[in-house]
Amino acid sequence: MSGVTEKVRDAAAMPAFVHDLRAFAADPAAGEATRETGDAWFAARRVLPYDGPVAVSVMTLEGSGEVTLGFDEFVFVIAGTLTIAADTTREIAADTGAMLPQGLAFGWTAAAGTQAAVVRYLGAGGGADHVVPIDLAATLNPSNPPAADVLTSDVPSCRSHTDYVTPNGEFMCGVWDSTPYARRAIDYRHAELMHLLAGSVTFEDDHGNAATFRRGDLFVMLPGARCSWLSTEDCAKLWVIYRAAA
């Protein structure tokens, strides 16, 4: 994200390790107003204060515009409807999202009051040449559970599907589900946006600060967070992850 004005204030009352993006979007005074100019796709953003390999922002759009992306951007529609016209025309409805890869030129149209969250990857993207929507109906395949040394419960059964990944393997998105499990607090060395599709999960840090998210919630963890995970029912999520290449 290019230069920003001074910080106004953070989004309301959440533990420091997690950011509730619906609350952030709903508070017009939250975050940093971007100095990006030109098309509203860039100029209508408020940025979550963070200096790292991804930039997380929200934007309120209506009308239309045309842009070319200099970075990979994952867009998640919080409210309203967003239509992207590139290789084909795709409508992104509320509560879902799509990856828009670096170099993509497209036109956009938004219904009045459309709000969206954006995760921009500041590294080398371009893992596709077209819009890549999240496939919520994808077949999920078995995936690795959390490491045994961090679990405080039985080993869960996990499944996932990846819709998009950059050539360097650092930035990706998809869908995941799991049976219930608990793990101790760990340090997050990656950034992850999560939208819960089913179930609930409680995160707690070493100081007893806790946050519980349920189906429909949208939130992000950034590198430097430290917290545990507790899910007492099956859960599923849409995910967007930055993880540094080994």
Rank of each mutant, 00 (worst) to 15 (best):
G3F: 09
T5L: 12
K7T: 06
A13M: 05
M14N: 09
A16D: 07
H19W: 07
H19K: 08
P28H: 09
A29G: 12
A30D: 08
G31M: 08
E32D: 09
R35V: 10
G38C: 10
P49D: 11
Y50G: 02
D51V: 12
G52T: 14
V54F: 05
A55E: 15
V56T: 13
V56M: 08
L61K: 01
E62P: 04
E62W: 13
S64D: 14
G65F: 12
E66R: 15
T68E: 13
E73G: 02
F76D: 00
V77I: 12
I78N: 02
G80W: 10
L82T: 05
A85N: 13
T88K: 15
T88S: 15
T89A: 14
A94I: 06
A98S: 06
L100F: 09
Q102V: 08
Q102S: 05
Q102M: 14
G103W: 08
L104T: 05
L104M: 01
G107K: 13
T109P: 00
A111C: 00
A112E: 12
G113F: 10
T114Q: 02
Q115R: 12
A116D: 03
Y121V: 00
L122F: 00
A124I: 01
G126P: 01
A128W: 08
H130C: 03
P133F: 01
A137C: 03
T139K: 08
A147I: 07
A147M: 11
D149I: 07
T152D: 00
D154R: 13
D154H: 08
V155L: 04
V155D: 08
S157T: 13
S157I: 11
C158F: 04
G169H: 11
C173A: 14
D177G: 11
T179L: 13
A182R: 15
Y188L: 15
R189S: 15
A191L: 09
G199P: 04
S200W: 04
V201N: 00
V201R: 02
D205Y: 02
G208Y: 09
N209Q: 13
N209A: 13
A210H: 03
A211L: 04
T212P: 02
R214I: 01
R214W: 01
R214Q: 05
R214C: 01
R215P: 01
L218A: 06
V220A: 03
M221D: 00
A225S: 15
R226A: 05
S228R: 00
S231P: 03
E233W: 07
A236Y: 07
L238S: 04
W239L: 04
I241G: 02
R243D: 08
A245R: 05
